[in-house]
Write a protein that binds this DNA or RNA. Structure first.
Lengths: 200, 200
DNA sequence: TCAGTATGTTAACGATGTCAACATACAGTA
DNA sequence: TACTGTATGTTGACATCGTTAACATACTGA
């Protein structure tokens, strides 16, 4: 990871910046990411990042996109895993979604935050985000075809399911849900309620 | 609103700051609120606010709390309105919640944002936020008593419902939902799905 | 009347994002 | 191999921002 001793050039500063920024976000939240601190941690000057990203927002957006891709992979593993019922797959996917957010709260917040919103025209972020949604739609569609839920526009149903898990994740992350609550039970109840509500 | 001509003292700078900050948030988002700009708009110096709020975050938290109270009032009007079924009241409350967020996107984001999270020990914010939740719980409880939904812990059910509307509101506000979607229909479908899922 | 307090102002500081000018390494070509 | 253009990194500087200290002014009650 470190650059060769005394080297002027880093080697692959771009990915090093992304990794280090992600690490800082995990440690101290997105607001702890400072161009100066970032450079210092990589043994590089404060302006070095500007050779690889247009500005700080572009860097953060790239980190957010990486987060979407990581979440995608995790959900994909469930979809490709042991061949269970489409109901079971939908349920586990929803639960896993919330768990990802709980494990990476600051990163998750960044993925849906202001910086990301301002740059939704950037293809990298758009693609990563819509890939996530398409995965959701596919699960819903499969569930529909198995006859479990109503034959409606699967995209609309996907939005409903996404709203529920994203809302729960956000409330949990932002400390809006009393700490005495059994989080696992709440996650299960939320996904269960939505799936019940979509039942044919 | 304006201070008397040439007056050294403002009269009620504290509420003027809150109102003006809310106006700025509506116009240009929370990041457009700057102590300097705020003072300028009120014909007051940049540091004047510090006589009324410990720091900028405290000011923003107070604005956020006011937002919670405004939302509370709107939902309360529905609860106290024409005596309809408890199902109908729950449905309309959920829809109104999302509509409030759509009408005040930046303010809504502030209410659940980082600044607010850091100061959740502040009683003003805690009270305003939990009042909102209690209102939700009451609607759920009434619905339970009318026999419409399962007799479970109403707080857990309230969290589920809150997750759905908060999630939908957030996704819509953050531009995550394709603009071709019929928003009103999606709002109705979301609340409907959750209420169906809670049915006895 | 006058002293104490509340409220507002001004000047300054450190931190931050960003840019321009400069320095260094690399890659391809003669 | 020597050279030249480009990619990458550094340094110094600037504007903006939140915040504080020292000071100024108005209000309030004894």
């Amino acid at each position: 990871m470190d650059k060769p001793n005394g080297a002027y050039h880093h080697g692959d500063l771009r990915t090093a910046l992304l990794d280090e920024a992600a690490a800082m976000i995990a440690e101290g939240g997105t607001e702890s990411v400072t161009m100066r601190a970032l450079g210092e941690r990589l043994g590089v000057s404060r302006a070095a990042a500007y050779r690889h990203f247009e500005d700080k927002t572009a860097l953060l957006v790239a980190v957010a996109a990486a987060g979407f891709r990581r979440l995608n992979e995790r959900l994909q593993e469930i979809g490709a895993g042991a061949p269970s019922s489409s109901l079971e797959r939908a349920r586990r996917m929803g639960e896993e979604y919330v768990r990802f957010a709980l494990e990476n709260p600051a990163h998750y917040r960044l993925m849906y935050g202001r910086e990301a919103m301002e740059r939704q025209n950037l293809p990298e972020l758009r693609d990563a985000g819509s890939a996530l949604f398409e995965q959701l739609v596919n699960v819903i569609r499969a569930y529909q075809e198995s006859g479990g839920i109503r034959q409606q526009d699967p995209r609309a149903q996907a939005y409903v399911a996404w709203s529920a898990v994203h809302g729960l994740a956000s409330l949990l992350i932002d400390g809006q849900i009393m700490s005495t609550v059994d989080v696992d039970a709440l996650i299960r109840q939320t996904t269960q309620t939505v799936l019940d509500g979509m039942r044919a």
